[in-house]
């Protein structure tokens, strides 16, 4: 019996995502139901979205688009926040 379309997608989404995160190589297991979004990544990392800003491949990701910004292997992300400074 040939696999249906949904099955193929499910298989492909189980692959892991290799990211450069704040300069370090990290591998994440993609979620079972689809690709990983910026929102999903921040949840996995345990970060409060209200206190950080995210840059993907040197482009700002607006906070309003975290949920719909999908990550692909090879993406480079900077996740920053405010600290003390003069």
């Amino acid at each position: 019996m040939p696999p249906d379309g949904r099955h193929i997608i499910l298989m492909s989404m189980h692959s892991s995502v290799s990211l450069t995160l704040n300069g370090e190589s990290r591998v994440f297991e993609g979620p079972a139901d689809g690709p990983m979004s910026v929102s999903g990544l921040l949840i996995v990392l345990g970060l409060d979205t209200r206190k950080v800003a995210v840059e993907r491949n040197e482009e700002i990701v607006p906070r309003s688009r975290y949920a719909e910004t999908w990550l692909a292997s090879g993406d480079s992300l900077e996740i920053v926040h405010f600290i003390g400074g003069g």
Partner: peptide
């Protein structure tokens, strides 16, 4: 004035500046 730096991903629950210097009370100048 405040600086912008990479989040320490190994300690996401570390206290943050905002917890001690309220951005609602002070104008943050990045």
């Amino acid at each position: 004035t405040v600086a912008l730096r990479r989040v320490n991903l190994s300690d996401p629950n570390a206290p943050m500046l905002q917890d001690y210097v309220d951005p609602k009370k002070y104008t943050y100048l990045p």
